[in-house]
Structure formats: structure tokens, C-alpha cells
Design a protein around this nucleic acid. Structure first.
Length: 331
DNA sequence: TGCCAGGCCCTCTTTAGGGCCTT
């Protein structure tokens, strides 16, 4: 049975942790045995000039159900596929309409003491890229996991960067793996990704996208990729960076006379005794790792859902932060 | 010839420098 992290009363820290324990135990079981991954046959409309495109490319989701079939799979979430067919039709008009929907700042809703559990979808995500430069490098893999579980709670795909992959030694993703016609390019993927995340949202709800070092790495990459195709981050997306949380944990442990060797994802994984099922530095493996770390981290730091939302940031926050920094440098 | 990512945090600090974290 899958429970939602978001169903936990906002002020009951213990409940949050208990809930996380149940959720992530269920998730862990699902992940270990693994559930089916689907090959989506997608039809999309090109964003540029409304040109219609049709292709079939491998994008994976999982059912989130512990079926008998899934228990027979042994080698991690990346290795198995079940063929199915789903149609995703998105055009620019639909996306424009989406952008026009008015959302309140969720942080104001906290102040108004609204029930966040009915508003927020938490999605852990990770990207693999050809390097560190958001300007010069490209995304080659994306993975997401909706922590409320259920059918199609994960999304993952390789991305065709249309350039060489110089750092295969890091993630094992080679130029040959991604530079081929059946791997979607980013311009093909963006509308599908937006549609997927929107499908996980609650009515007039918000999305909290969580990643390790999100502020300096993952989020700027995502923003840049969207901007390349004249797209913007949807107004109801908020980001949570777990790196500052890891730093808080290190300070907390230090005050208790303990030591955290590093604030990396690997160090947190080791601290909490989480076993890696698959190749580290593949997007879904890191997503699964962070999905298991998050409830333990929030428990140790006594963080509620509303406190997580308070720590979140938007694209606007990043822009304003940069402006303030430039202002300080000038004056 | 010079640059080659960038934001955050710590300290031998704040008109700075270096390390961490992500691929």
C-alpha cells in the first residue's frame, strides 16, 4: 500500500516521519522488486510553428504497484520494460493556457494555514549531463519520482543531446546510446515532461521538485533548456535543494559530537545505510537514493511539509538573488 | 593571451580565497 507524504498533518513531525517510513518502506519494496516500466508511444506537436511531429521513443514510467510480474524483476528499475501505448498530445496553445492559470504563491498559503497536503505534489528528480556548464553542456538523461506513488509514479528517459558525450566514465551513458533517432531530443521531450508533471498535480495544486544541489546544478540546467525553446518554468513549480539540508544535518551532528564526512548524496546514502540498486550516477538510481534519504533527513531535522515548502525557491527567487548579488558587487 | 560553471559556505574572513557539490 502506498501512502502519500502529503497526507500527513502539517504540525506532527513524528507523524511525518512515521508516514515516510511507511511510504518509503513501500517504495523500497516496490523499487527492490521493481515494477513495470512502460515504453510510451507518444505523439506530439512541435512547438516551433505548430509543425506536427510523430515518433516513437523510449520514455519510461512505472506502475507503482507491487505486482507478481514486478517481483520477478531483479536488476533494478532501469533494466525492464513492458510495452504499452500512451498518447501524449500537447500543443503550444495548451501550454500557453497552462501558463495563464493564476496560482497563489504557496508560501502565502502556508501563512493562511491552508492544508498543504491537498495542494503539494513532491517529485524527486535528477539529471545526467555532458558536463557542468549549463551554457555549454546538455542534459542526456532525466528521471523523476512522484513520492505519492501510484501508477506511473516515475518518469525517466535518455535525451539526445545532438553532440558528443565526453564524460561517459561518470555515468556510463555513451554518445552511441543517446545520439540515435529513437532517443528524444530536448525539444521533443519538454512538452511531454510538462504534461507528465501536470498529470501528477493536484487540482490547482503546486509541485515541489526536489534534487541534491538543485539550486546550483539541476534547476539552472532545466531553466536553460526550457529557455532554449522559448519556454518558462510553470508558475506553480517550486524547487527544494537538499544540499543545504545536508549542511544543516552536518551542523546538528557536529553539535552532538558526531561527524558527517561530507554533504554529498553518497555521504548521506552511507549515513543512512541505503543500498544502491543499480549504477550510481544514473538518474533514476540517484532519484531512488534521494527518495529514501529525504524522509530520514526531514525526520532528523524535524522538518514538516510546510517547513520544506518555506525552504523552497522559485525561478524568480533565483533571478532576484542574482540581481541582489550583482547590486552588491556594483555598489 | 586568457579563459574554461557557479552558488554557497567556511575561515587563516567580509574591499577574499578556497573548497564543496553537482556531471
Amino acid at each position: 500500500m502506498i501512502f502519500s507524504l502529503l497526507h500527513v498533518p502539517r504540525c506532527r513531525i513524528q507523524s511525518l516521519a512515521n508516514y515516510c517510513g511507511e511510504t518509503f518502506h513501500s517504495f523500497s519494496t516496490t523499487c527492490g522488486n521493481n515494477s513495470g516500466i512502460r515504453l510510451l508511444s507518444s505523439r506530439i506537436y512541435g512547438l516551433q510553428g505548430g509543425q506536427r511531429k510523430k515518433w516513437t521513443r523510449p520514455i519510461s514510467t512505472n506502475t507503482g504497484k507491487g505486482s507478481t510480474k514486478s517481483k520477478s524483476i531483479k536488476h533494478g528499475i532501469l533494466s525492464e520494460t513492458i510495452l504499452t501505448s500512451t498518447t501524449a498530445s500537447v500543443n503550444k496553445t495548451q501550454l500557453d493556457q497552462f501558463q495563464e492559470v493564476q496560482y497563489y504563491d504557496i508560501r502565502q498559503e502556508i501563512a493562511q494555514n491552508k492544508d498543504l497536503s491537498s495542494l503539494v505534489t513532491i517529485i524527486v528528480f535528477d539529471i545526467e549531463t555532458t558536463g557542468f556548464s549549463r551554457e555549454n553542456e546538455r542534459i542526456i538523461e532525466i528521471a523523476l519520482r512522484d513520492l505519492q506513488g501510484g501508477e506511473n509514479s516515475t518518469f525517466q528517459t535518455l535525451v539526445n543531446p545532438q553532440c558528443k558525450v565526453p564524460n561517459s566514465h561518470i555515468h556510463g551513458i555513451t554518445t552511441q546510446m543517446v545520439n540515435k533517432p529513437d532517443v528524444p531530443r530536448m525539444e521533443d521531450l519538454i512538452p511531454i515532461l510538462l504534461q507528465y508533471i501536470r498529470s501528477r498535480e493536484k487540482p490547482r495544486g503546486h509541485v515541489l521538485l526536489v534534487a541534491h544541489n538543485a539550486r546550483c546544478f539541476d534547476v539552472p540546467f532545466i531553466i536553460n533548456e526550457l529557455r532554449r525553446y522559448s519556454m518558462e518554468i510553470p508558475p506553480n513549480w517550486y524547487f527544494l535543494d537538499t544540499l543545504p539540508l545536508a549542511r544543516e544535518l552536518r551542523e546538528l551532528m557536529k553539535s552532538e559530537g558526531k561527524e558527517l564526512s561530507s554533504t554529498s548524496l553518497t555521504a548521506l546514502r552511507d549515513l543512512y545505510g541505503i543500498k544502491v540498486d543499480g549504477s550510481a550516477h544514473r538518474a533514476m538510481v540517484d532519484v531512488n537514493t534521494l527518495s529514501l534519504i529525504l524522509p530520514k533527513l526531514t525526520f532528523d531535522l524535524k522538518l514538516t511539509l510546510s517547513s520544506l515548502v518555506k525552504k523552497s525557491f522559485t525561478e524568480s527567487d533565483m533571478i532576484n538573488s542574482k540581481k541582489k548579488k550583482n547590486f552588491r558587487l556594483i555598489f
